[in-house]
Write a protein that binds this DNA or RNA. Structure first.
Lengths: 162, 162
DNA sequence: CATATATGTCAACAACTCTGACATATATAG
DNA sequence: CTATATATGTCAGAGTTGTTGACATATATG
């Protein structure tokens, strides 16, 4: 009997979609919550974390690189980046090929802070990976990758090292 | 040779964690972006979407129920909820068992709007499920569930219907 | 030399969140 | 019945992060 009730299928489908939506919402909320306390102690917010994170992953990126990854305006970035430079977590170097560019690097203090922030998320994600098992992790990556806009999937793959 | 280099393992482990962190960030960003345009047309934001969504999933919830799910303050909720009530998307009924409670329901307009917002995310998530396959979807759910704080996993399981 | 690009800065504004204080209606315990 | 607790609402002030718009400077490129 290969016949299937379309309405039942639609119902199941919707429930499965909503399950994904809700798990994404709750998981993302807890996941981002971890570093926030440590950041708040220094008067920083989540935006500072993102900047530290992506400079750490792309040392020597010009400002434009960060704007492209984060998809925010330079005015938005400059406030946050300015604070990080001011307080000694990020260092700017004039580009050698193109002297208009400001290439961004974490200072030792920046790298240390980034590691501390990462550690909180590492523990949570590592535990989830372990609890779910390697096959689930592969599925987790695969679904997330396909949720990302097709146009930027390639860039993300480059970012995460395939 | 069962011996494994611990440093190499640690490196792989960190790369795998960072892959999860970044996929989560990029996927969540695109995923939340979809409904925002439609909301902006009506002067609403993402907070309105969350309220519509969870009232739709829990019709008749008292205000406290929403505060517990969303983990925001009543002052924060009241502005958003007030607008939704004012503009006819949410209806409040005095509780019968407890007349202090305001039980929340979507109006017809509210249900319609919620469906339109859901449709945008449905398309994205359904496509990702299809591209990744059912086993990956199960893994996706499993990892996300384990990323959520253990204390609230039970509530989430109830929310998503197991 | 003219134009484009990379970056920075100032100002105003909007969304969403918070804390703190206070008010009202209703339920519940003694 | 009275005292207390709970559910909800409201006002005021503040912080973080994002936006748009306008303008400035340094450097690269045709």
């Amino acid at each position: 009997m290969s016949y299937k009730l379309p309405q039942s299928n639609l119902y199941l489908r919707e429930e499965e979609i909503r399950r994904g939506i809700e798990l994404l919402y709750f998981a993302y909320r807890d996941f981002t919550k971890d570093p926030d306390d440590m950041l708040a102690e220094r008067g920083f917010g989540r935006a500072h974390h993102r900047v530290l994170y992506f400079i750490g992953r792309n040392p020597g990126t010009p400002v434009t690189g960060l704007l492209t990854i984060l998809r925010i305006t330079k005015q938005s970035l400059s406030r946050v980046l300015g604070q990080l430079v001011e307080e000694g977590y990020v260092r700017q170097e004039t580009g050698t090929r193109d002297r208009r560019q400001r290439l961004l690097y974490l200072t030792d203090a920046g790298a240390k802070l980034e590691q501390q922030l990462f550690e909180k998320q590492r523990a949570r994600v590592a535990q989830a990976y372990k609890a779910a098992g390697p096959d689930s992790v592969a599925g987790f990556w695969d679904v997330l990758l396909n949720i990302i806009d097709p146009e930027e999937r390639e860039r993300v793959l480059r970012e995460i090292g395939r």
